Amino acid sequence: MTEYKLVVVGAGGVGKSALTIQLIQNHFVDEYDPTIEDSYRKQVVIDGETCLLDILDTAGQEEYSAMRDQYMRTGEGFLCVFAINNTKSFEDIHHYREQIKRVKDSEDVPMVLVGNKCDLPSRTVDTKQAQDLARSYGIPFIETSAKTRQGVDDAFYTLVREIRKHKEKMSKDGKKKKKKSKTKCVIM
């Protein structure tokens, strides 16, 4: 069974824990209790493949930012979460993405942009803004509501699919490099 290491990042209060708990335990946590770091595991079937999701729910508070490099190193894919009623959390996505790329030393890291709290009427981040940002990053965008469960499975499952595509691409690139290195030079 394939294991996928997913990391949920975003500013404090955007609903990272609520999304994760909704996926794992099928219930909505409405009281806000700032996370330092929590880890969850769940076995699911995605596109006919049974897999184990190892999900790291991270601290959004700035005082825990020193811990970010460590979990970013171990993560295979990242859910970059903002709240649709919090423009600052949307603007912060850029910083999370840049930090992930720096730590992973790669421009090509599996990510999904997630606009959470889409059940709320007080939207300050337009869907088109988020779609445009995701398009500019070359990553999928999904709106979710941890409260109603809308888009929750889709967000995590899409990230797994992005990781699969990335692994497939990397193995193809690896095979191309191996083929090239088999060419021999004969000096007579």
Rank of each mutant, 00 (worst) to 15 (best):
Y4S: 13
Y4G: 14
K5W: 02
K5M: 09
L6Q: 04
V7K: 14
V7A: 10
V9M: 11
G10Y: 01
G12W: 14
G13S: 12
V14T: 13
K16H: 01
K16I: 00
K16Y: 02
S17P: 01
S17Y: 01
L19C: 12
T20Y: 00
Q22L: 03
L23P: 00
N26E: 13
N26C: 13
V29P: 15
D30W: 10
E31G: 13
P34W: 01
P34C: 02
P34A: 07
E37H: 02
Y40S: 00
Y40K: 00
R41E: 02
R41S: 03
R41L: 03
K42H: 04
Q43A: 11
Q43C: 05
Q43K: 13
Q43S: 13
V44S: 12
V44F: 15
V44G: 12
V44D: 11
G48R: 10
G48E: 08
E49W: 05
E49K: 11
T50A: 10
L53A: 14
I55R: 00
L56F: 01
T58L: 01
Q61C: 12
E62P: 09
Y64M: 03
S65W: 07
Q70W: 03
Q70L: 05
Q70F: 07
Y71C: 15
Y71K: 12
Y71S: 15
T74H: 08
T74I: 08
E76W: 10
F78W: 04
F78H: 04
L79R: 01
L79F: 03
V81F: 09
F82P: 01
F82V: 13
A83E: 15
A83V: 03
A83T: 15
N86R: 04
T87S: 06
H94L: 14
I100C: 14
K104H: 15
D105I: 14
S106Q: 14
E107L: 06
E107T: 15
P110S: 04
V112C: 12
V114R: 00
V114S: 02
G115Q: 08
D119A: 15
L120P: 13
P121I: 08
P121K: 10
R123T: 11
T124E: 12
T124S: 10
D126I: 06
D132P: 13
L133A: 09
S136M: 10
Y137N: 12
G138V: 06
I139S: 07
S145T: 15
S145D: 03
V152F: 10
A155G: 13
T158E: 07
E162A: 06
R164I: 06
R164L: 10
K165L: 13
K165V: 13
K165F: 06
K172G: 04
K175A: 14
K175C: 15
K176M: 08
K177L: 04
K177N: 04
K180T: 03
V186C: 07
M188R: 13
